Simulated scan of single mutants.
Amino acid sequence: MRSLSEPCLIWFTRGQGRITINGVTRGYGPNNAIFIPPGVMHGFEVGPQTHGVIVYFGRGTDLTLPHSTHHLRIRESHIQSELTSTIDAVHRELLSDRPGSERAARHYLGLLGVWLERQVELTPAEPPRLNASKRLVARYTALLERDFRSGHGVADFAAELGVTPTHLTRVCRQSCGRGASELLQERRLYEARRLLSETRAPIKQIAETLGFASAAYFARAFQHKTGKTPSAFRRGK
């Protein structure tokens, strides 16, 4: 489970799997376009036959993009081709050393925003009907995304939501196949991997930043999940 500080568009062109957004899991297949705004917790599974691309629009972008998540199943071949060719054009310009290539890439990203607007308007995706349990899970994941660094446990989050930890765990497992503590631990450890890869912050400081009781407990949790100690992960071994 992760969250990005920028909007992204995932375009699956082959294969199938499951994607979890805001604690609700749905299937995806070929020619599925999924737009995810910044700050929305998500994660997805990929198999050996899965193929696709992710377009990142940039942190703080001023492009016109949707404000909510959209899962679009694109059935018309000409609309599929339009999306693929625009993404290819962005990639081509980013690799180019021709004058104005960055500006051209930005304009193509703007066209992706137009493509999304048209598909949401003309062929709106069927949103999953959220029952009370799924609404609770969506509230939990939003709260978790806000406070996963706080050191709070599932009991603290459950108390804030006005339910018992047992009930929260049960509805999370029903909604996305993961317990409440698994969602919390996955989110914290994804952030740990990011910090270990992208910063030189000491491991003890990373553990404190993410709310672990001690560096030793952080190291055990990290190794249990990844098979590597934080030091080995940072060294790429």
Rank of each mutant, 00 (worst) to 15 (best):
L111P: 01
R173C: 02
G110N: 10
E82N: 01
A158H: 03
S101P: 10
R187F: 04
R92Y: 09
I74H: 05
Q16H: 14
G179D: 10
F44P: 03
E198L: 13
T123W: 06
L210Q: 04
E121L: 12
L144M: 13
Q119F: 04
A132Q: 15
R149H: 15
S175D: 07
E117M: 11
E102M: 13
A207M: 09
V120F: 06
S77N: 00
E45R: 09
I21P: 02
N131P: 06
V137P: 00
N131Q: 11
L184C: 05
G52M: 01
G236L: 07
E126F: 00
C172E: 04
R235I: 00
S181E: 15
S96Y: 01
H70P: 04
P30W: 03
T209A: 13
H78W: 09
L72Y: 02
A158S: 12
S197Y: 11
V24Q: 09
S3Q: 11
A132H: 14
L9C: 05
R193C: 15
V154F: 02
L196I: 09
R106L: 14
L63S: 06
I206M: 04
R220P: 02
A33P: 03
M1Y: 07
S181D: 14
Q16E: 15
P30N: 02
T123R: 10
S197G: 14
S231F: 03
A155F: 03
D62E: 15
R193I: 03
P128W: 06
R75G: 06
P30I: 01
I34A: 06
D97M: 10
T226V: 10
F35A: 01
T169P: 00
I87T: 06
A219Q: 09
D156P: 01
G29N: 07
G177Y: 02
A142K: 11
Y108D: 10
D147N: 10
G47A: 08
P66C: 08
W115K: 10
A213I: 08
P124I: 00
E102V: 12
E117K: 14
V53T: 15
C172N: 03
E102F: 11
S68V: 14
P48N: 10
A215K: 13
L144Y: 03
G52T: 04
S214A: 13
S96H: 05
E208G: 09
L109C: 05
Y217F: 07
I203P: 03
H71F: 12
N32K: 00
G177V: 03
N32I: 02
G29Q: 08
Y140L: 05
V154D: 03
T84A: 15
T20A: 13
V55E: 07
A105E: 04
E93K: 00
I203T: 13
R173F: 07
S133F: 02
S68M: 13
A138I: 00
L130V: 08
K134N: 14
V163G: 08
V114E: 15
K225H: 14
T166N: 13
